[in-house]
């Protein structure tokens, strides 16, 4: 989520969320006969800055710390809070959207509003700016988790969720020849994509290693080429192709230890004639075809049900 759509999500939420969802339900109320001198203790003890004044189950006003400060400043005698409370109580309905509360806070500058039921007009709770912020944050957090959950589910059950008689995914990666620094990017991206599809890690590793070795061969010996991976529920089929120079004797290069790699490649830890051998070990099936002057195609098949069988040395 970018900051921009987060803001618009909040704008949506203030219309979506109802006041009743974020209000405080366990309201501390005060009896109108309570003396002003007792108010300070109540507010401090309950850690609140104001409360509805209830005569039985009827709300008759709201008293707040501002009323208390005014009473102190005026140095008046002690009296019941019913004389000092605001009697013109502004209320909100629990079924109103949050944006109505936001507007009323702005318009009246009050610290809190009583929330009542539209039909019975009974007090249900109170709402402060703090409740609004808290409610929005909670909802955004829930949204975030849901999004992540949906994302994980979506990829893990990718094949199951697609309704078709046959599902085939194709990935292609272009490989530049002689670019040793970037060598392996194709295999790396293929590996990340297979992981996201939720395939078995061992299968993913085998495909990645085989593809990486093949990619190194493209980088070392050719002017470049393509890696194409075809992913089906039962197998991953990787075709690595270039357009030359081609291999004069295919049987010879399949022999472990046979290599025509230049010294600088050997110094970098490759070109020891083990690459194709490694690919053979990772693959359920491998096929190498080449024609001098035309190019080479390497076919690697990894059976997804094949598990670790080929992965033991």
């Amino acid at each position: 989520m970018t900051p921009d759509n987060k803001i618009s999500r909040i704008q949506e939420l203030v219309y979506e969320i109802r006041i009743g969802e974020v209000m405080q339900k366990d309201v501390i109320t005060i009896n109108p006969q309570t003396n002003m001198s007792e108010l300070r203790g109540i507010l401090r003890e309950k850690r609140i800055s104001g409360a509805p004044v209830m005569d039985g189950d009827k709300m008759v006003g709201i008293i707040s710390i501002e009323d208390f400060i005014k009473w102190l400043a005026d140095r008046e005698n002690d009296c019941p809070i019913s004389e000092k409370m605001s009697k013109d109580v502004k209320t909100l309905y629990a079924d109103e959207p949050l944006t109505h509360a936001v507007n009323k806070f702005e318009r009246f500058g009050f610290g809190r509003f009583a929330v009542i039921d539209r039909q019975s007009r009974r007090l249900l709770g109170i709402i402060t700016k703090g409740n609004i912020v808290e409610g929005l944050l909670k909802k955004l957090e829930i949204d975030h988790y849901k999004e992540e959950e949906v994302y994980c589910r979506r990829v893990e059950h990718f094949f199951e969720d697609i309704l078709a008689d046959k599902v085939v995914l194709l990935f292609q990666y272009d490989v530049a020849g002689h670019d040793f620094k970037r060598a392996g990017e194709g295999a790396s991206r293929l590996k990340a994509s297979l992981k996201r599809l939720g395939l078995d890690p061992q299968i993913v590793r085998r495909v990645a290693i085989a593809t990486y070795e093949a990619e190194m061969n493209l980088v070392i010996y050719t002017e470049g080429g393509q890696i194409r991976a075809r992913v089906e529920p039962h197998e991953i089929f990787v075709k690595v192709a270039d357009s030359g120079p081609g291999i004069p004797d295919v049987q010879k290069v399949l022999r472990p230890g046979y290599s025509t790699a230049p010294e600088w490649i050997r110094n970098l830890g490759f070109g020891a004639g083990m690459g194709l051998n490694n690919i053979l070990k990772c693959a359920s099936k491998m096929d190498l075809r080449s024609e001098v002057g035309k190019g080479t195609q390497l076919y690697i098949r990894v059976d997804t049900k094949d598990g670790a069988t080929s992965e033991t040395n």
């Binding site: 040793f180 620094k181 060598a183 392996g184 295999a187 790396s188 590996k191 890690p201 590793r205 990645a208 290693i209 990486y212 190194m216 970098l268 830890g269 490759f270």
Partner: peptide, 17 residues
């Protein structure tokens, strides 16, 4: 443990987990 320090060492580690 290796004496090689080129980026392909990290790639290799990535591929082989």
């Amino acid at each position: 443990l290796t004496g090689l320090i080129n980026p392909q060492v990290v790639r290799t580690a990535e591929m082989a987990d």
